[in-house]
Amino acid sequence: MLPVSDFKYIATKSNLNINKPLTSLGYLPEWQSLGKVKIKLLLTLGAVLFCLFGTQLVFASNLSTGGEKLVSIEKEIQDQETENLKLKTQIAQSSSLSTLFNKAQSWGFEKPQKVISN
């Protein structure tokens, strides 16, 4: 697209009456040139604002759904910790001396009577 100054240059160079409509020669009148620039500026501004708005929407949407992700991750952590606790308790119960003692007795083991020393 030609800058605004080119329109003035062409008009001066060809000794044309710049106030005369030049549609037949392929040139646009001034007021129409200026209107086109304004439209393009507005369009550009609108596009930028639209992009900003869209970006804000995307971020806000991600943050909103982020809450759900956070809850889901926290639940997973809690489930893992609960499972870990359960397993720790099971290990402690299975390896407790009273459990081992009872198992040994049921399997027929007997306590040694003599003292074993170094």
Binding site: A60, L63, L70
Partner: peptide
């Protein structure tokens, strides 16, 4: 401390 939606999910904005 958070804003929550009707399902109780926190809104992080």
């Amino acid at each position: 401390n958070s804003s929550v939606d009707p399902q109780g999910v926190p809104i992080m904005t």
